[in-house]
Simulated scan of single mutants.
Amino acid sequence: MGLRSRLRTPLQARRRVVVKTACYRLVMILVSIVVAYLVVGDVTDALSIGLITNVVKTLTYYGYERLWDRIAWGT
């Protein structure tokens, strides 16, 4: 049985995954900025760290969610 035949239709609409991802990332951006500020003590650096790392994390999370939503194992 090939990989294609083991995949299934996603349970969530793409729009729902995007909204969930965006809401989660907004909270995580705030957390990252606060932690970065506590570590570096500079607002500009904290904003840069918080924003850049979270752009990368958002894209990674979206891809991860989409991948697992197509795997039938364990459902």
Rank of each mutant, 00 (worst) to 15 (best):
L38K: 08
T9L: 13
L26D: 01
Y64M: 06
L67F: 08
I33Y: 03
V40F: 13
R4I: 15
T75F: 02
P10R: 07
Y64A: 02
V43D: 09
W68R: 03
V43C: 06
C23I: 07
V35F: 08
L47W: 12
K20C: 01
V18R: 00
V35P: 00
L47V: 12
G50E: 04
T44F: 11
L26W: 02
Y24I: 09
G2R: 07
L30S: 09
L26P: 01
Y64N: 05
K57Q: 11
R8C: 12
I33H: 00
L30C: 10
K57Y: 07
Y24W: 05
T53A: 05
Q12F: 11
E65T: 11
I52M: 10
I29N: 01
M1H: 11
K20E: 06
T9V: 15
W73E: 11
R15K: 10
E65W: 04
S5W: 09
I71T: 09
A22T: 07
R8N: 11
I49H: 04
V17F: 01
T53M: 03
I29T: 05
L7G: 09
I52A: 09
R70P: 00
T9P: 04
K57A: 12
Y61Q: 00
Y62D: 02
V40K: 08
A13N: 12
I49E: 04
L47T: 07
A22L: 02
V31P: 03
L59P: 00
V35E: 08
L51C: 10
V39R: 04
A22F: 00
L67C: 06
S32Q: 03
N54R: 11
